[in-house]
């Protein structure tokens, strides 16, 4: 082959992660369809603000605050191209090359992103510079895992569509270390809109936002308006 590829690439072939809830056909809820049409009527076909449209950030932030009794700010929240980009941006920005990542569950969700960062996966939470904790692992397991981590370890907490109310930021001393990530609108037929979010502590937010901008500039404009209307129609 004339064109040789980077060594990290070779490690990734065959390790693709399927996007969550991808299978089958998804019909957007009517509120989302209406939002798409309204946005097109208004000419919403341009780049949006890098972190995403403000009303959607406000809405998502408010929902997180209400559900988990957090104090997240819309200005520290970034709308991403699916949960995939939220995970990826965290893994690239919150660990250094050579750093260590521990996944409490579903290591396949972050293994590829860790490889691209040049970070290593470890079975031991105590060694990690970043721990990935999907909510689906359950409160008990999460508490046990987080009781082991180093003082400066970053925590990526992945909310799923279950209605859990436990949040690791509530644990003593962890508030400034937890980034919350999630999908948007899967239950509203919005799987094809490919939207997610990351809500970061104030200190980490600018770096995450800048990295997302370098990666994709902004998330799809219409998807964001669709998600806003769908979420508001709750």
């Amino acid at each position: 082959m004339v064109m040789s590829l980077s060594s990290r690439t070779a490690e990734l072939i065959g390790r693709d992660v399927p996007p969550s809830a991808a299978a089958g056909a998804h019909r957007m809820v009517q509120a989302a369809i209406d939002a798409v049409n309204d946005a097109l009527d208004r000419g919403e076909t341009h780049y949006t603000d890098r972190p995403g449209i403000l009303p959607l950030r406000q809405k998502v932030s408010a929902l997180l605050n209400e559900r988990f009794r957090l104090a997240s700010r819309p200005s520290d929240l970034t709308i991403t191209c699916g949960l995939t980009e939220a995970r990826f941006v965290c893994l690239q920005q919150l660990v250094e090359p050579g750093g260590t990542v521990h996944a409490l569950a579903h290591p396949e969700a972050v293994a590829g992103a860790a490889t691209i960062r040049g970070a290593v996966l470890s079975q031991a939470a105590a060694e990690a510079d970043l721990v990935f904790v999907p909510a689906s692992a359950g409160e008990e397991a999460i508490r046990a895992c987080l009781s082991l981590i180093k003082p400066q370890c970053m925590v990526v907490y992945e909310v799923d569509s279950e209605q859990e109310t436990f949040h690791p930021a509530a644990l003593p001393g962890l508030a400034e270390q937890v980034v919350t990530i999630g999908d948007l609108g899967l239950d509203k037929g919005l799987a094809t809109a490919r939207l997610g979010y990351l809500a970061a502590p104030h200190q980490s937010a600018p770096g995450l936002r800048d990295f997302k901008q370098a990666l994709t500039i902004c998330s799809t404009n219409l998807s964001q308006w669709a998600a806003l209307n769908a979420v508001e129609a709750l």
């Binding site: 082959m1 072939i13 996007p19 191209c81 699916g82 995939t84 980009e85 490919r194 990666l215 404009n221």
Partner: peptide
């Protein structure tokens, strides 16, 4: 610009590799 659709044209093995990376960066485009 707001629709966020671009593309890469390359030898097939490079496309396969980039698709593998893309499954970790953002997954499919809307």
């Amino acid at each position: 610009t707001g629709w966020r659709v671009g593309y890469v044209i390359a030898p097939e093995h490079a496309i396969r590799a980039m698709a593998a990376i893309k499954s970790h960066t953002t997954g499919p485009v809307a």
